[in-house]
Simulated assay, not measured.
Amino acid sequence: MRGIKAPDPSEVGLFYDRFAQLSAMADPEANLHFGYWDGPDDDASLPQAAARLTEIVIEKVRLGAGGHLLDVGCGIGGPGVHLAQTAGAEVTGVTVSQEQVKLANQRAAEAGVADRVRFELADAMKLPYAADSFDAAWALESIIHMPDRGQVLREMARVVRPGGRVVLTDFFERAPIPEYKRAAVETYYRETLLGPIVTLDDYPGLVREAGLMVDELIDISENVMRRTTQEASRLKQAVPAEVQQMHGDDPAFQFDPGDLTDVWEFGYLLVVAQRPRG
């Protein structure tokens, strides 16, 4: 993106500190990511569709009772807590936002899973864990903020045991974005502190160079992007007056997600990889 500098982790942390409470209000299940709709006739709300995307990632990570997941960019804890509740897994989540750590651990305690789910302040590009510490890892719409995806993937590969799965979602450029559509995408990247844009062709190399094997690269844009941006725009227009007063001057809050609705070239990718055995 033109004129967009790679985000610094400390900036991203402060960004999510600003919006942590609003995020908790927006979705009772704390799935702070885009939604997944089965088709044009699917009438799910954005929170329901976001929960469905969480379920898809849980299915792909294939982790059961006794397994230990690293949740990279854990948000306020919704997906990690849900995995612990439904699969019986242990979860360690990391984020660069102190407010998210606080809210995520509070959520784990309220859900009764704090004995096996914990959230910590840590940089995904320098994970504070020994090699082979986890059975799997995911980065659910968090690698979008990383200045170096390759470094994050190498760190995830390092801390996951052989045979373990690494699952992530990412924005990508499906086709060259026309000049008349670029302003909306560039504004979104700038105001929400996104890292360099990638293409589908970039991912096999990124995964292999991290020491992982590609299992699946799935373009799920048609199920995700248009409806999410439409629904997010609609919800933004209906925020309570107190929220508008609190965040109305924030450039990131001012951005209308509906500006991206017709940018079909801006897509959403599901990546499934694994660390080879032996």
Rank of each mutant, 00 (worst) to 15 (best):
E231P: 09
V243I: 15
A139H: 11
T95L: 08
L127Q: 07
T199F: 03
D256F: 09
L69D: 07
D115G: 13
T192R: 03
L168T: 10
V239C: 12
D38L: 12
Y188M: 12
A175G: 13
A238K: 14
V61G: 04
A183D: 10
T95V: 11
Q48C: 05
G163H: 02
T92D: 06
A130K: 12
P79M: 04
R2I: 14
W264H: 15
D71S: 13
I218N: 14
H82S: 08
T192I: 07
Q85K: 06
A6G: 10
A232Q: 12
G13H: 04
R161L: 04
A49G: 06
D249P: 00
A111E: 02
T92W: 07
L121H: 11
G150P: 03
K126T: 15
Y16S: 02
R158A: 05
I56M: 08
L212H: 01
Q85C: 03
F34Q: 00
I76Q: 07
A6M: 13
D215W: 02
R118I: 13
S10H: 14
W138H: 05
G73S: 08
I56C: 10
L70D: 09
K126Y: 08
R226T: 15
Y16K: 00
I56V: 09
R52K: 09
I4Y: 02
F19Y: 03
P196N: 04
S23A: 13
R277A: 15
A6P: 04
P40L: 01
R174D: 14
I76P: 06
A175S: 15
V224F: 14
R208A: 12
S45R: 05
I58T: 09
W138E: 01
A184D: 00
I76E: 06
R149V: 11
D123G: 13
Q254P: 05
E120G: 07
P9R: 13
A122V: 11
V152L: 10
S142I: 07
R227P: 12
L194R: 05
T192Y: 11
M25V: 14
T192Q: 09
V101P: 05
V207Y: 00
L83W: 03
Y268D: 03
F34A: 06
V61E: 01
K60L: 08
H68L: 14
W138D: 01
G112H: 06
L127M: 12
P47M: 03
I143F: 07
R275I: 01
Q21Y: 13
G150S: 06
V198L: 14
P257M: 05
R154N: 03
R154M: 09
I143M: 13
I143S: 12
T187S: 13
Q98T: 13
G258V: 07
Q237C: 15
L140A: 11
S10P: 06
A51L: 08
N105K: 07
H247P: 01
L194E: 00
P9S: 10
L53P: 04
P204V: 01
V207F: 02
Q237H: 15
L121K: 12
H145W: 08
R116C: 08
M246H: 02
Y189M: 08
V160F: 05
V207L: 02
P40D: 10
V12A: 02
R226E: 15
F171D: 06
L193D: 05
Y36G: 06
V185W: 04
L140S: 09
P128H: 04
D71P: 09
R174A: 14
P251S: 03
G13L: 01
E186Y: 09
I56Q: 10
I220Q: 11
D215R: 10
M156V: 05
S233R: 05
